[in-house]
Computed example of a mutant assay.
Amino acid sequence: MGMLQEFKTFAMRGNVIDLAVGVVIGGAFGKIVTSLVDQIVMPPIGWVTGGIDFSDLKWVLREADNSNPAHKIPEVAVQYGAFINTIIQFLIIAFAIFVVVKLINRVTRHKEAVAAPAADVVLLTEIRDLLKEQQGKS
């Protein structure tokens, strides 16, 4: 089998396509969460904390020097405010994924419980049928 044919077989598997769809949806979901954090969650938090915009918080290690236009020196800073925003985004995404997985597990368990009787129920049913069979022979 040629390499192209093997690749086609690999790429057309259901789980690879599902993974690709999940990555695309995850990327879009990440943008939604970023917007939620930056434009909805953080402004009220900034308002409560006295107008602080977390994305602007930083620890400046070296100030920018623009005195010489031919040789500009950029600012060097640790932007911990952006890091705080990213942590909040991560927590929201993690919680959303937790809720989705929990719901999927609940639906899956419910379907399994309805679809297949428990092993002890099957065993007891077989014993009952054997006892009825024995009584019918006597």
Rank of each mutant, 00 (worst) to 15 (best):
K72I: 13
K72C: 02
I32D: 03
K31W: 04
A11H: 00
E6P: 00
H71K: 03
V16A: 11
M42A: 12
F7H: 01
K31T: 04
P69Q: 09
G51R: 05
E63Q: 15
V37W: 06
L36Q: 07
D38F: 14
A20Y: 09
M12T: 07
S55Y: 12
M42R: 03
G50V: 07
S35W: 08
V16D: 01
A70H: 01
Q39A: 11
N66C: 08
W59S: 03
I73P: 11
N68E: 04
A70N: 08
P43F: 07
D65P: 05
I32S: 00
D56I: 06
I40Q: 15
M42D: 10
I52H: 08
P44G: 01
I25W: 04
A64R: 12
N68H: 02
G30C: 01
A28T: 15
E63W: 12
E6C: 01
I25S: 13
P43D: 10
G51H: 03
K72M: 08
D65F: 06
N15H: 10
Q5M: 08
D56G: 11
G51S: 06
A20L: 12
N15L: 05
K58Q: 15
D18L: 10
I73V: 15
K8N: 09
W47F: 13
V21Y: 08
T9N: 02
V23C: 03
N68C: 01
V48F: 03
V37P: 03
W47N: 14
G46T: 10
K72L: 11
S67R: 13
P44K: 04
F29P: 02
F29W: 12
I73N: 11
S55W: 05
A70Q: 07
A11E: 00
A70L: 06
V41N: 05
W59Y: 14
V21L: 09
R13N: 04
I52V: 14
E6H: 04
G14P: 06
L36D: 10
I32Q: 05
D65W: 12
L36G: 14
D38E: 15
G50P: 07
